[in-house]
């Protein structure tokens, strides 16, 4: 019973944050609502017994990735979103079909699964996860390090300052 109440409380916070992310027009406010969503999702993971995933969710998602987002928003001095109108098709077909999809998903999920998840039935503590990660999933784990390396190089190449030799010395650059 306590678990159900906790699930509903954090789920409500999660839903509110997700809706707020869409409704806000300033990117920094959207970023802060996304942090709320991620923090409450970490609580949901704890309810499911996934301790390691909950900790990583807070450290990596709510910590590292969102700091990156907020940093870029500040760096580019992103202001309030300017309103430009998309196609009418999006409003008249896209949104109703999104609603239909949502109703269908809820119907399918609630009518075809009657099982319950016992809280804490599966214990995902760092020790167990680490054993699994370094035995059964060792190769994928090592491959992710290459992925990260490529991502670092890509980020440096893309965000780095363009070659100064390509630019005439007498034309002052805006971002210099």
């Amino acid at each position: 019973m306590v678990h159900l109440i906790l699930f509903l409380v954090f789920g409500a916070v999660c839903v509110a944050g997700a809706i707020n992310l869409i409704l806000q027009t300033h990117p920094i406010q959207s970023a802060l609502s996304l942090i709320v969503v991620m923090a409450s999702l970490a609580a949901e993971y704890l309810l499911l017994g996934a301790e390691f995933v909950a900790a990583v969710q807070v450290i990596v998602y709510a910590g590292a990735i969102m700091v990156l987002f907020v940093f870029v928003i500040m760096l580019l001095n992103a202001g309030t979103e300017e309103v430009t109108h998309g196609s009418k098709i999006a409003e008249f077909i896209g949104l109703p079909s999104l609603l239909l999809l949502g109703v269908l998903m809820v119907w399918a999920v609630t009518h075809h699964s009657t099982t319950s998840v016992a809280a804490g039935s599966l214990y995902g503590d760092p020790k167990t996860i680490g054993r699994l990660l370094f035995n059964q999933y060792l190769l994928p784990f090592e491959v992710t390090s290459i992925l990260i390396l490529i991502a670092i190089m890509g980020a440096v190449v893309l965000a780095g300052r363009p070659e100064m030799s390509n630019i005439q010395a007498d034309t002052p650059r805006k971002d210099a």
């Binding site: 997700a18 869409i22 990117p27 300017e82 309103v83 430009t84 949104l95 949502g102 319950s116």
Partner: peptide, 28 residues
């Protein structure tokens, strides 16, 4: 005991919110 479907509905809602934001927002 929380029914599995509750978690799946919350997950589907978050995904749908993400899709809606992706389609509706104009800021990259």
């Amino acid at each position: 005991m929380v029914p599995l479907s509750y978690y799946l509905v919350l997950s589907a809602f978050l995904f749908a919110c993400g899709v809606a934001g992706f389609l509706l927002k104009r800021n990259i």
